[in-house]
Design a protein around this nucleic acid. Sequence first.
DNA 1: CGTTTTTGACCGGCGC
DNA 2: GCGCCGGTCAAAAACG
Length: 331
Amino acid sequence: MSGDHLGRVGGGGGDGFPLVNDYAALLTHSDHGGFHGMDDSLPATPFFSFSDYLQGGLGVADHHYGQLVVDASANTDVFGAAASGSGAAGKLSGGTGGTTPVGTPNSSVSSSSTEAAGEEKEEVAAAAVAKEEEDGSADKSSKKVNKAAAARKKGEQKRQREPRFAFMTKSEVDHLEDGYRWRKYGQKAVKNSPYPRSYYRCTTQKCSVKKRVERSFQDPSVVITTYEGQHTHQSPATIRGSSHVLAPPPAMQSSFLHQELLMQQLHGHHVLNNNQQQQQQQVMRAMNPNMYLPSPFLLLQQQQQQQQQLHEFPDYGLLQDIVPSYNTDQP
DNA sequence: CGTTTTTGACCGGCGC
DNA sequence: GCGCCGGTCAAAAACG
């Protein structure tokens, strides 16, 4: 039946997240289920679009959301898992200006990260990005990439699935509101986790965006959301009501908050290389196609080369694979 | 009554 | 070639 999910460990082959060109980040969501009704925990701050963010400069540490943004340490933990040595002391910082409904002790994050550094890392690394390239270089000689890939590449490219964008959010609600409507089409047990993974698909007909949501088994407070593809339409939440970019409905605000946080997290992660930073920028640029897409998508489908660095910075590898394929950026 | 969720079965890819 | 595993399908149930 369905009771076999937390059984096996290290089944072997499965990495848990066979992502291809993915990008991940951790967000710390201060409020829990506020979305679904009361969102009092969310500050009534004006929201920024990505473009604003970008144009406004990348050093927006003083952002309004600053108070919502939280411990970069936790971020680091989850993000880099192993890289966080001092993260243990991090802890929730800003705590929502007054409200910290989430009784989630970050300590669990740090501590668990320490203990389960390996596993957590695995999970993160996977969600983070992963690589699976199939170039002829395949010198990694890892377990993956072999005859199958070789054969495939030989004749034709494997149907590259759409780029994915994964990010982690500290939230108690599994399915975070992002302004779009989703229909759940499946649920599967995650290998090393007691928590299942849910598969959603955008209900808009022409839209084929999918997303999966799962919870970190060591940090139940952390939800990993992975988007795949990009919406071919606007968010219903957007259409409904205002055509302006301002004053989005609560749900959207939270959605944007996520993204804002995401970026801050990224930037707050001052441990990146130049390349990585550049890529971050690219990613962000990609993230806002024309105006503001309430959801983080876009991305890439190129990778390669930087693999070398991947070896040296496995923890930050996620940033490596990110290469926006969209040149919607302006001159 | 229409839509979404639930859940076991099924399928393809990949490792061994 | 076999078995494991992630991802998807689809029928039935649940929900509003």
